[in-house]
Write a protein that binds this DNA or RNA. Sequence first.
DNA 1: AATCTACAGTAACATTTATCACATATGGAT
DNA 2: ATCCATATGTGATAAATGTTACTGTAGATT
Lengths: 208, 208
Amino acid sequence: MQNSLKTIFPNFSGELIATIEENGSLQDFKAGTILMRTGQYIKNTVLITKGKIKIYREGEDGGEFLMYYLQPGQACAISMICTAKSEKSQIMAKVVEDVSVMMIPLQMMDKWMMEHKSWYEFVIETYRSRFEEVLEVVDNIAFRSMDERLEFYLKRHSDACGCSEVKLSHQEIATELNTSREVISRLLKKMEQRGLVKLNRNQIELLK
Amino acid sequence: MQNSLKTIFPNFSGELIATIEENGSLQDFKAGTILMRTGQYIKNTVLITKGKIKIYREGEDGGEFLMYYLQPGQACAISMICTAKSEKSQIMAKVVEDVSVMMIPLQMMDKWMMEHKSWYEFVIETYRSRFEEVLEVVDNIAFRSMDERLEFYLKRHSDACGCSEVKLSHQEIATELNTSREVISRLLKKMEQRGLVKLNRNQIELLK
DNA sequence: AATCTACAGTAACATTTATCACATATGGAT
DNA sequence: ATCCATATGTGATAAATGTTACTGTAGATT
């Protein structure tokens, strides 16, 4: 286990790894679990060691707008930011592939910043990369139309799962893009006509 | 001057203020100046001591999508994030009201994090508040229609300038919301009919 | 096999937003 | 006052997206 934490977070110093193992608690969650809800107080910083998590922004009407994925070696920036002040979560986190996460109690966050350079650098890098990711989300919805956003969505999904088959219903995709199933069905048909995908029941195969 | 820095950043320790004055350079820029361009390398962290700055995300087609305002007492989160790794800017910053900014050389950023608790807390709080602001931007474009977004835009403008008159042309507003002038003109007319605003040339008066 | 259910396809229509074309208004410069 | 540049108003139309309603279909259940 010691070994694997070092593998997943290669930039962490040996000391830091030891400290994490001493103070953090490794927990497993099944796919489908809501790890964090909008408005909830956050008590831990979350490091992902296995599996995948999707981060959503929730609308007042119950929409679940997908922002980005978290994967092994990454951390939830929101959990860091909010932890620092014990604020409420601004997002919802859902497990999409069984995960193991290392929960770091909030008081460690500040402490380690001073004591471990590799932790400090990791936190800064996490802020930077998540900020950039959200900026890309803004780009997509501010400047692009639904067909482009759908292509981006599918590409990102296949990148995340490492395969070219997207096993999601049109309804699920529609929800995460905050549109309706019919729109997705139509756009997918057009993509199929353009030779970009092959459509099957509960599965979209990316061809290019 | 010493006095005013302490007034604008009340949480900074005396030591930190002294260090800032020793290492930073105070610079003035006129309204209209582009302080930072997308793709530019960042060499300084920027603290605003006077005036106002707007932060934009630029589209490939030349769109200038307004994200948020920066005001005295605040800092550009992007300049912190990118400074930390000397990365390229992901945004464009435009002066909208003559500013004075304190430029902090990038190497100070990391150094002070370790040495000054009040700097550390300021940086974390900057990340947190800017992240939240971007999330609010996502909300607006993901879940709201143009009329709601326009109302939000006007309200935010009047909050920022501290007055109820928005001295902008319809074209300028349209550009910052990434839509067309005609759409803004029409929506404003409807708002006028609903008694929310009074329209004059180059000026929109908020009534509620 | 018959039935059921979630998923997918699609037509018709409504609404929102974008674009084009042009008219009109305003304030400043001459 | 006349002219000019810029700003605004508005109709017509197109395109994108959202909604409603219905059909068909594959796979699971009985």
